[in-house]
Simulated assay, not measured.
Amino acid sequence: MDNSIQVLSDKASLIASKNTWIEGLAIQQLLTTADLPNMVKVMGMPDLHPGKGYPIGAAYLSREIIYPALIGSDIGCGMGFWQTDINLAKLSIDKLAKKIGNIDLPDTHHKYNLGTIGGGNHFAEIQKVSKIFDATLFNHYQLNAEKLFLLVHSGSRGLGHAILQNQLSRFGYQGLADNSDDALRYLEKHDNAVAFAQLNRQVVADRLMTNLNTQGQEVLNVCHNFLQKVTIDKQSYWLHRKGASSAMDELVIVPGSRGDYSYLVKPIQREDLLMSLAHGAGRKWRRADCKGKLENRYSMQELKRTKLGSRVICEDSSLIFEEAPQAYKSIDSVIESMQQANIVTVIAQLTPILNYKTQGGH
C-alpha cells in the first residue's frame, strides 16, 4: 500500500504524507465515526481537521443508514471556478479592488440570502495561472493563462443550516434508515439545498463579474458537503462527504488559504479511497484562538496584504483574523499527499490576486 495511506483501524484510513500535519483530535473524531452503526469505511483526507463532534475533510461510507449530521449544516457547499475575460497583461489590483464593489446584502430578513458569500471560510477570489503542470489537459479544457480566473467558495447559506437544525431537534445525531419516510424527506431537502448552493455560487460569480464588467466561462461548479448513493462491487452504499470533493467530478479546484496557492486538478477515481479528495488546505488553528495568536503581531491593515502580493477585502475585524493564512496548513503538503496516493493529476497552480470576504455594512 502507498506510504501516504495510513490504516488507523479495520474501518478507518487516512491519506497523509510524512509532511502532512494532522491534529490528534481529528483522528480521534474520525475513529469515532467509524464506530457508528452500519458504517462500512471512513477515509480521512490530508486536510482533515476537528469539527463539532465529527471531523471535516473526510468521506464516510455506510450501508442502509444515512447520517445527516455527517454532512453538516452547509449542505451543498463547494467551489465554482470561472475563466473571465480580464487580461492578465492589463492587471491593476487597485482598479480591481475598486470595481469589485460590494455584494453583501442588507438584513432584509430574506431567509437564505441568494447571491451572497456568507461568513466563515467562504470567499471569492480573483486568481492568475502561475504554473502549468499538464499543458495537454490545460489546453483540452480550453483554458487561457493570459486571462484572470474567479473562484467562489460558498454554500446553501441559511437553508442548509435550517435543514440540519430541524433534523437535530427531531432526531439528534442518530442515523435514519434509508427507506424510512424521515430519510426520504431529508434527502429531498438535501437535494434542494445542493441545487441552491450551486445556484448561489453562479449568482455570486455573476454579480462580481457584472461589477468587474467582464464575462465568464464556467470551468466547474462542484460540492464537497453532500450525500450520494454509490454502487461498489454491486453493493449499494451511502457516501457522505464532509469537506471532501468528489473524484467523480471531471475537474476540481483545491484552494489554499487566502495567502496561498490553489491547484486545478483532474481527479482519479479509487473506490478503495472512497472516490474522494481533499477540498482545501484544512485549518491548523481553531477560530477562537486566531485573534489571540495574531493581534499582537499584525494589524488589520497588515492582514489585508499577503506574502504572495495579493489583497484581501474584509471589513469584519474578527473574520480577518480567523481566516488569516497562518491559521491554515500548507496547501502543497495536501497536494503532495494526494499525488502520492494517486488520486489527482495536477493541471495548474493559481496565485491569488484579490480575495473578497465582505465590505462590511451594506
Rank of each mutant, 00 (worst) to 15 (best):
D182K: 15
N211T: 06
C223H: 05
S299F: 07
G282C: 02
V203Y: 09
A89W: 04
A162W: 11
N102A: 07
F171A: 01
Q142N: 14
D182F: 14
I71T: 15
L212R: 02
P255L: 08
M1C: 07
L8W: 06
R185L: 15
H161V: 13
L354V: 06
N211L: 00
P325Y: 08
Q339I: 02
Q83L: 04
V40R: 10
H110I: 14
S9M: 07
S246F: 00
S17D: 06
R283T: 15
P68C: 02
Y261N: 11
Q359L: 09
M45A: 00
G53A: 12
L294Y: 11
F321G: 00
E271N: 11
Q6T: 08
S317W: 04
R157C: 11
V194G: 01
A26C: 06
E188I: 10
S62R: 07
L150S: 09
Q28V: 12
Y67Q: 01
C77A: 12
L273T: 03
D191K: 09
V203W: 12
N113C: 12
D191N: 11
Y112I: 01
I353M: 00
P255G: 06
K131M: 13
G172P: 04
S236K: 15
N3Q: 09
L48S: 07
D107S: 11
R297P: 04
A278V: 01
Y263M: 01
S333Y: 03
S13F: 03
L8S: 06
D332C: 04
N166L: 02
